[in-house]
Design a protein around this nucleic acid. Structure first.
Lengths: 223, 223
DNA sequence: ACAAAAGTGTTCTCGATACACCCATGC
DNA sequence: GCATGGGTGTATCGAGAACACTTTTGT
């Protein structure tokens, strides 16, 4: 029943994932409701223990898939949280990741490890388990600062998107409105977009051109 | 002999520290020579196993002090390296930190865990143990980028310093010369320095004013 | 016709860059 | 007096910010 023995104490290691999306014009985060103690029935970031033969990033992707059915997100290591008392069970060190995905690709479904999976707007969060509020706070900071010198925002829109949609993403993350002309000038000057040829349709207004990334899936650093 | 047992496998967790300084007008890093296998007699970053009741940052500071006698550095978490095969002994996950300190405060002396401790210029590195080259490379990248939006460079000069010395630090990290007048204008416009009143002496030229940080020990983010 | 978002240029400001000479000290 | 780094100001350029009207579609 306790076959894994070592000459000196070993901590447990987990990954936790802060998956952001934009839902109803707000930043939202994916949470699961815990099925077992500690913090039973409490909401928490998806995540779990690192398997002996998997890398940390693989662990994060696997846990996200197992617990929420979600795959194909942008994922990046955030910070490692290791306060000795952060978990009441034993010493657990957590390598936190943050992830980004457009909301409407995803159809979260509770996996085996979680009773419920749900998006929560960041301004209407429930109480969170462990030090997950700290993780979330740091993740949001990182998202905000990285917006300015990289192309992470593109991970929050669909494969094809309008410049209006993209601008909305920037505005929501920065928490302030942006000038339309300056925004378009800036984005197009990056030379990272290609017109998809198609346009919006079925909207109450002039249809917008649809763009796609010239090199999909590539994160660019600016300046 | 193996009293620490768990219901499922636990990795070991270490911290490794990339301590930079400026030595003889070059970026240099502190290395220790390993006394035991694996990579016996090889040079490596200082670091070691996380104790059950210490935080990660404390572990890094403790290992640095034990192995090199050095304290009082600027320290910041860098990245967590967890490839399953990065250590031949067992699964070891390493939380890497990078640190900065002025060279002439330090008088590194081998502690109990290391046979030798030595500064190495980055352009004259020996072979390094484990994935320490990766850690070092990432640390150097971080140092370079963070130079532009924070006051980390101040951690590489003494408590009082001349603007010439500070400029040298920027030039060495960026790998290019800077304009003296523009540099001084920029630094002074930050309003973070106070004149110490004193000046250099014993130099072959006009003595420079000595400055100190108005709030020593505080890291500022710019823009 | 009206509502709603798309699309489009110019002006201004401010921070970043480029650049050259005199000053104080030790030898 | 000469070598060495310290100390200083101005002109230019370019990126970012401010700003308003016409266009296309659905109802």
């Amino acid at each position: 029943m306790a076959p894994f023995c070592y000459d000196y104490p070993h901590p447990a290691v987990t990954t936790d994932i802060a998956l952001f999306t934009i839902l109803e014009d707000k930043l939202a985060i994916l949470l699961i409701r815990r099925r077992s103690p500690p913090f039973q029935h409490c909401w928490a970031l998806p995540g779990g223990f690192v398997e002996p033969d998997e890398g940390l990033e693989n662990c994060a992707l696997r846990e996200l898939a197992e617990e929420t059915g979600i795959t194909g997100v942008y994922l990046e290591q955030l910070y490692t949280f290791g306060q000795p008392d952060r978990d009441p069970r034993e010493r657990i060190i957590s390598v936190a990741y943050y992830a980004l995905a457009p909301a409407d690709i995803l159809a979260p479904v509770a996996g085996s490890d979680a009773a419920e999976v749900c998006w929560f707007a960041l301004d209407a969060l429930p109480d969170l388990a462990f030090d997950h509020p700290d993780i979330l706070c740091l993740a949001q900071q990182r998202l905000r600062t990285k917006l300015d010198y990289s192309t992470i925002a593109f991970s929050l829109v669909n494969e094809t998107f309008t410049l209006g949609e993209l601008q909305k993403v920037y505005e929501i993350i920065r928490g302030e409105p942006l000038d339309k002309r300056n925004f378009r000038k800036y984005i197009l000057s990056l030379n990272l977009l290609a017109e998809s040829g198609a346009s919006q349709h079925g909207c109450n207004h002039r249809p917008a051109k649809l763009y796609r990334l010239a090199q999909p899936g590539t994160l660019h650093y600016l300046r």
